[in-house]
Design a protein around this nucleic acid. Structure first.
Length: 407
DNA sequence: TCTGGGGTCCTCAGACGA
DNA sequence: TCTGTCGTCTGAGGACCC
């Protein structure tokens, strides 16, 4: 989807069409999640600190974003995709891979399917999307970027909408591109490759495989070498199962007080466990992440004896992990995640849980009340006063904290 | 410029058991 | 009993993606 979050906002507020619009964290620690092409012409891009974006384009309209709304629209768009093929692999709210091999007899060749799907998304949702067509998964992804509109201060040039890379032409398409366009080559790998004189995908393809693996490790080296020759055996995988569930939050001001940090911890765990139960899974590994004021980041993890989706069990584990962390130097971010997930029904109860008043019953009651009356209707008493009763939900603070006090 | 949040995957080191 | 080796597991951290 093209500038997805911004486009959804522009549907609600048509007066914003043609304006530089930025969706993201509006506080001083926020970042840009999505920028209109008019804003991109000023050099603004996603993940850029909002403060920097304000400097580059003070006249832009800054919006806090509405993650729930974007998720709803995304679901409807994915439904349109599934009308074309059941083999849809969502990559994020606004991107997906579609395997249309089985749809060709009914709907035409992949190019025709792409064009009609693009029209369908536009007619039904009023949103623009760009589609890359290729027999190779990651080439289709690169080609979709090619199909997108281009921003400049002279105006936005519409994209082709659909960009095909026909079978047999993948290598010719790939080799002139900068190596950073390859999936898996970020700033760190690009820097390492540039020290070897590798600037384009073609340079990388020409490099001896052993040299590459000794520079990047066996896994990454072999993988990137294959990609550089247009070989990507990965298929489209619908219904991917999550491997971890977590929440993390950057605070508007660093926290120096252990008691205050503990309240935040309880709130995050409550949210994570609530999501685990909603998804019907439980996990065995608990990880706490702490980022200090100087941006130094540590993680501490522990494996439990049995899987759990229970807040008190996860809180205990987190408190043990945090016991060795000194918050007085200032904590900027706190995160909690649970991994080693499996469907929740068959977990074993620990001795601590056996015979005690059932936390399962209490959890279920809390979940039911939130389901019926909303996420702010009930919560843990310890979080009262700082955040009300609210259990953090996915997207509550998607792109950085507000600057309001007490958060 | 001063760096979010939700994830996945990989590497490396240390512990541990056979 | 001690030592070395190997495979596996776990934890920490880094890189990457949107």
């Amino acid at each position: 989807m093209d500038a997805f979050f911004v486009s959804v906002e522009q549907l609600r507020r048509p007066e914003l069409v043609g304006q530089p619009v930025i969706v993201g964290g509006t506080g001083s620690r926020g970042v840009v999640a999505s920028a209109s092409y008019e804003a991109r012409a000023h050099g603004i891009g996603s993940a850029m600190p909002t403060a920097r974006a304000r400097q580059l384009c003070p006249s832009a309209v800054f919006l806090p974003g509405d993650h729930r709304r974007y998720a709803e629209v995304s679901q409807r768009v994915m439904k349109l995709f599934r009308e074309v093929t059941p083999l849809v692999e969502p990559l994020s709210l606004d991107e997906a891979f579609l395997d249309v091999t089985g749809s060709r007899r009914l709907l035409g060749d992949p190019l025709e399917i792409a064009r009609s799907l693009r029209q369908r998304v536009s007619d039904t949702e009023g949103l623009g999307c760009s589609i890359g067509v290729s027999a190779v998964k990651f080439v289709a992804k690169l080609a979709s970027d090619e199909a997108k509109p281009r921003a400049s201060l002279q105006g936005t040039r519409p994209g082709a909408g659909v960009f095909p890379v026909f079978p047999g032409t993948e290598v010719a398409y790939l080799h002139p591109l900068p190596v950073g366009r390859l999936w898996g080559v970020g700033p760190a790998t690009r820097e390492r490759l540039s020290r070897l004189g590798i600037l384009t995908i073609g340079d990388l393809a020409a490099l001896d495989r052993d040299t590459l693996t000794s520079a990047l490790g066996d896994s990454a080296g072999n993988h990137l070498h294959e990609l550089a020759w247009g070989r990507d055996p990965r298929g489209v995988v619908p219904d991917r199962v999550a491997k971890s569930v977590g929440h993390e939050e950057t605070f508007a001001a660093d926290i120096h007080d252990g008691d205050v940090l503990d309240v935040e911890l309880v709130r995050l765990v409550d949210a994570v466990c609530s999501r685990l139960r909603a998804s019907g899974v439980s996990g065995r590994s608990v990880t706490v992440k702490v980022r200090f004021g100087d941006f130094r980041t540590i993680t501490r993890a522990v494996s439990l004896h049995s899987r759990t989706d229970s807040g008190p069990v996860v809180i205990d584990a987190c408190r043990t992990l945090l016991a060795g962390v000194d918050p007085t130097q200032g904590v900027r971010l706190l995160g909690v995640s649970v991994s080693q997930l499996a469907p929740g029904g068959d977990r074993q109860l620990s001795f601590d849980e056996l015979g005690s008043p059932s936390w399962d019953d209490a959890n279920r009651a809390v979940d039911d009340i939130r389901e019926r009356f909303g996420s702010e209707s009930i919560g843990l008493a310890v979080t009262l006063g700082r955040h009300g009763l609210r259990a953090k939900r996915r997207g509550d603070q998607a792109w950085g904290p507000d600057d309001s006090p007490g958060t």
